[in-house]
Amino acid sequence: MSQDWERGWLELSVSALDVVSRVETLEAVEAARVEYLGRERGRLTALLRGLKDLPLEQKKVYGPQANALKDAIEKSLESRKRALEAKALEAGLASSRVDLTLPAPPWPRGRRHPVSETMNEMTSILGRLGFSLAEGPQVETDRNNFEGLNVPADHPARDLQDTFYLKDLPLLLRTHTSPVQIRHMEANKPPIRIMAPGRVFRHEAVDASHSAVFHQVEGLYIDKNVSMADLKGTLSVFIRGLFGPKAAIRFRPSFFPFVEPGAEVDVRCLLCAGEGCPACKRSGWMEMLGAGLVHPNVLRFCGIDPEVWSGYAFGVGVERIALLRYGVPDIRMLYENDLRVLEKLAP
């Protein structure tokens, strides 16, 4: 009996690991497992089962050896299995075919309108400069749109802003975002630092560079000892934030009834960098916004003492900048909503 066992053991201990390490298919791995370790007929299983019938001395010698062989076979089978599986996967991947020239299905992603995109960038820069958002209605009173802004009835400055009036109502469509100044100053005490982005309306013929509906971003700062130099500093930062660190501005005297002194602010031509090109009418500069120190009459109108407080205000047109940023040749295209145009604009 013990001799049979020993013969069986000898054969197995010599060959089993060798056989197992050489299996070449996953099926062969399984077959080898059944042959040696199968629960019913596994050859090593049978030997392990026979251990109990061996004399004690032999049991002590062969017991650990047989169990060690079992562990070794299991390990070897596992490692072969993993190796063969990896090989099979690799072969599968190698033979797989993906046509990457097929058109990918589009994930629907929309875009913001170039005007919103531009306006958001402006308000984001101003927001970082400490301006908080303010807003007002688009249908306004003469009082807020003109009178409070130092443009009394029949003032020739009204020609600068041709106006849409409402039928049967003493109201108009605001010609600028400046009435928000009046509303805000009447409702709040200085110091004030606000920005008011929004839609404005001018009664003028629509063409490639003029729209009767457009957008402005208004800025207003009221505090003690505010000067033109503060205005220039803030606008310089704003414009460089918008157009890049190399952008430069210049101030020219100009007239807006609600500021004194008033300035037209030019930006060095963004297309020719000041060399002179058709876009800047060969001047090297582009007219970009109007600004100035808030007129004492405006402060007084809003109940703010101009002897104590001073401030600046500015207003930037959004469309002109959007046209420049995106190279759109005609302002009307911004209001047509042709998807073929819009889908190419804005990030």
Binding site: G127, L129, L133, P191, A229, G233, T234
Partner: peptide, 22 residues
């Protein structure tokens, strides 16, 4: 107007107010 310098914006800032609808 070119002789007007550029001053840094004063740091005293009002607390920003958020407007719910916008």
């Amino acid at each position: 107007f070119a002789s007007i310098p550029e001053e840094a914006a004063p740091a005293r800032l009002p607390v920003p107010v958020s407007l719910p609808v916008p």
